[in-house]
Design a protein around this nucleic acid. Structure first.
Length: 511
RNA sequence: GGGCGCGUAGCUCAAUGGUAGAGCAUCGGCCUUUUAAGCCGUUGGUUCGGGGUUCGAGCCCCCGCGCGCUCACCA
């Protein structure tokens, strides 16, 4: 049972008092005729049409919104309400409202309450477009005050207070309050919706079919990550929440679906950070008869298209950087990029042992775990030396085979696969390759993975026999692609934590 | 999971180991063009929780909880 603070008790008492007077505190219906923006626009048009200020046609409106500020001055009251379109001022005067009703508004209404006000539009002496209220109605009483104070020290030592919430915990845990108080947060999530819509539109326009594959899976796969495990009672078996869509989407290529994509949630039972949340939104597509170079081109077009829709330009501000997503993006072969960033040529060190010695000789303070595979060491070099330097959108291409069990080798180079990752602002946003479609090779890769990681239970991928069965029916050559949509959302909204672009990021439960 | 930091009124923050405070919000009053209005007055605390040291703990010590930063993990 909730325990009420003294402020809440005051408001609960007001609810009781209002009801005692026959005023409904949570009426079922509202009678809004205009949004704040519509009413203001109509009034401004009326002003323009008038020959002189005394002959402005009357604009009547009933507005609805949440009280954000109140200034009671005895026989006058000013208030601001905020609706989906913005804020607008209300002006109440004893002349029209009467002493009792004005006192009711002043004493019984609070910041945070939803109200409806009917009147005619006017402009105040200060020049603000305002609703001159003739009648009003409570729509919903708020019991808890919005936690909306933020003090900012000014240069002259004074303190200015803004209606805003700053505490990251409070903002994430009570996103409803954050949204109610911080308009820019609503704007971020509007942009996120635009982003997802634009990705869909782009892929639809390129003849990709949107599909939905299981989130609840008897086996997991398609990525190296620990899954969440759950249990189906009637089937009496454990189920996994998917860690990627890959193996299901590629089954669809076996079924003659040539271009498919899915936008949905992936779940990875791993650490959280500024770029990791246990559940995140993934976009994957698979494209028959294409290879990774074609996917690369489509990727830069798609992201540029999305940037244009979300930010209005292919150039976006991200912290101190200006990121330019305009195609073509910079392309760097991974071997060359690592050589330039670390001074080590991975092509000259073809075993894990050799490579480790080379790293230890060159960078004695930055060495990988000596027990890992060559591919993992290369990945270490990439993360340690190269990744932080990739600020402008860049494709890194040609990856080690042993960390890419689902990608096809480069003809004539068995250690390297046709794979690329897209980077921007120093982190990975997407990952793609020419997909392995040889069922015999695929089976061997799965078996190799099992032995490479025998002592690493967490990274062991279960062998998916049904996926191999599907491949044996024949899979067309194809290019596949995966992208962390949340990370792209971060880039396009200039947010530096994934929590800022997730409405309800994962948090420990309270208490 | 490791390291560092933080947790005090509804909110934002103070308080050498010595009576827990300020601003805003609340509540009461004045005020017919305000805009985080203003002025006067008023109320409000399990100092995150539990234990310990001490004559005395918001402060020192231990354990726990939550959050932030960071490292590890994340082909």
């Amino acid at each position: 049972m909730a325990e009420y603070t003294s402020l809440e008790k005051v408001r609960l008492q007001k609810i009781e008092d209002l009801r005692a007077e026959g005023i409904e505190t949570y009426p079922t219906r509202a009678e809004r005729t205009h949004t704040s923006a519509q009413a203001a626009a109509e009034f401004e048009a009326a002003e323009k049409s008038a020959a002189d200020p005394t002959s402005i046609p009357e604009v009547k409106a009933t507005l609805a919104g949440r009280i954000r500020a109140m200034r009671a001055m005895g026989k006058l009251t000013f208030a601001h309400i905020e609706d989906g379109a913005g804020k607008i001022q209300l002006f109440l005067r004893v002349n029209e409202i009467g002493k009792e009703r004005l006192a009711l508004f002043d004493k019984m209404f609070d910041i945070g309450d939803f109200v409806q006000a009917t009147g005619k539009m006017m402009r105040t002496k200060a020049g603000e477009v305002t609703l001159h209220v003739l009648d009003f109605k409570l729509l919903a009483k708020a019991v808890t005050p919005l936690p909306a104070d933020k003090d900012v020290a000014q240069e002259d030592g004074s303190v200015v207070r803004y209606a805003a919430i700053e505490s990251p915990e409070l903002r994430a845990r009570q996103r409803y309050a954050d949204l109610a108080v911080n308009p820019d947060v609503r704007e971020t999530f509007r942009k996120r919706a635009t982003l997802i819509k634009s990705l869909r539109a782009f892929l639809d326009d390129h003849d990709f079919l949107e599909v939905e594959t299981p989130i609840l899976q008897p086996l997991y796969g398609g990525a190296a990550a620990r899954p969440f495990v759950t249990h189906h009672n009637e089937l009496e078996q454990d189920m996994y929440l998917r860690i990627s869509f890959e193996l299901y989407l590629k089954r669809l290529l076996v079924g003659n679906m040539e271009r498919v994509y899915e936008i949905g949630r992936d779940f990875r039972n791993e650490g959280v950070s500024f770029k990791h949340n246990p559940e995140f939104t993934q976009l994957e597509f698979y494209w028959a008869y294409a290879d990774y170079l074609q996917v690369m081109e489509l990727t830069e077009q798609m992201v540029a298209y999305a940037a244009e829709k979300v930010a209005g330009s292919t150039t976006v501000k991200f912290g101190e950087h200006e990121l330019d997503f305009k195609p073509p993006w910079k392309r760097v072969e991974m071997r060359v990029g690592i050589l330039e960033a670390s001074g080590i040529d991975i092509a000259e060190h073809k075993t894990a042992e050799d490579l480790f010695k080379a790293i230890a000789a060159k960078h004695p303070k930055k060495t990988p775990d000596p027990k890992v595979t060559r591919g993992k060491m290369i990945d270490f070099l990439l993360g340690e030396f190269l990744e932080p330097t990739l600020i402008q959108p860049t494709f890194l291409y040609n990856y080690p085979r042993d960390i890419s069990p689902l990608a096809k080798s480069i003809p004539g180079d068995p250690l390297t696969v046709e794979r690329f990752e897209g980077y921007a602002a120093g982190f990975e946003i997407c990952n793609a390759f020419t997909e392995l479609n040889d069922p015999l090779d695929q089976e061997q890769r799965f078996i190799d993975m099992q032995s490479d990681y025998t002592d690493d239970e967490e990274e062991k991928n279960p062998l998916d026999e049904d996926y191999l069965r599907a491949m044996r029916y024949g899979m067309p050559p194809n290019g596949g692609f995966g992208m962390g949509v949340d990370r792209l959302a971060m880039l396009l909204t200039n947010k530096h934590s994934i929590r800022e672009v997730l409405l309800f990021p994962a948090l420990r439960k309270e208490e």
